[in-house]
Design a protein around this nucleic acid. Structure first.
Lengths: 118, 118
DNA sequence: CCGAATCCCTGAGGATACTG
DNA sequence: CAGTATCCTCAGGGATTCGG
């Protein structure tokens, strides 16, 4: 939670375009993974999600809030906002892990199939 | 495999709009589940997927083919086409089961959260 | 029976710029 | 720092009709 998020946390070669499994919208799964170790601030989230724009990140966070996966908290101090997983959000972590495990094992086969089909 | 697919296989109240987990496109996960017990014909698939149109089903099936999840086989006889899971497609079944298990346990909480947020 | 062809429309997602 | 405000594109998804 204290350590900053790895900017290379998500493989740019394996974006969500290729990943056939999604939780929420395009960024939902990645955001949830970013929050696994504890609350994060808006600007912290933008680091590993490099290509996301503020508007889209906001939209995704709002959607995760609506579904009860994430809580938004304004902390004292100037413009300090934190996003954290709820218990319901945490309940998705196992699924996300399973999805990542599937990807590591089978993504090559998927890519091969896709290439074989041109 | 021999038994016809249950027309009520998928809860119309809980369509993929609500389900936050997706495999492939909107219909991908449901199609894969339909093929779990063995090959199925196009028209068989349309039964549980009631609201899908032929065009969209075709498109989804083609996408599943491209990714190597499904094979399309033309059988002898007039216009007899079968779709079946490949081993790669079968490798997704565990994930889909996990997703369904998650949904059964937590979907109510999600719906509550969504309603609380209006 | 298994689609293909056509048309359409919404919305997810992005680019860019600005603000309290 | 944490977003808003516009504008735009494009593809997912659907309705309807047609064909071998």
């Amino acid at each position: 939670m204290r350590e900053p998020l790895d900017p290379e946390m998500f493989d740019p070669v394996c974006p969500s375009e290729v990943m056939p499994i999604r939780v929420g919208d395009k960024w939902g799964g990645m955001i949830i993974q970013c929050l696994e170790e504890g609350p994060r601030r808006f600007s912290e989230l933008m680091v590993p999600l490099r290509t996301v724009t503020p508007k889209v990140l906001t939209k995704s966070l709002r959607a995760l809030e609506r579904d009860g996966f994430v809580v938004r908290t304004e902390r004292a101090g100037p413009r300090h906002v934190e996003y954290a997983l709820t218990p319901l959000g945490r309940s998705l972590l196992d699924l996300l892990d399973a999805a990542r495990a599937w990807a590591e094992t089978h993504m090559d086969a998927l890519l091969d199939a896709r290439e074989a089909a041109q």
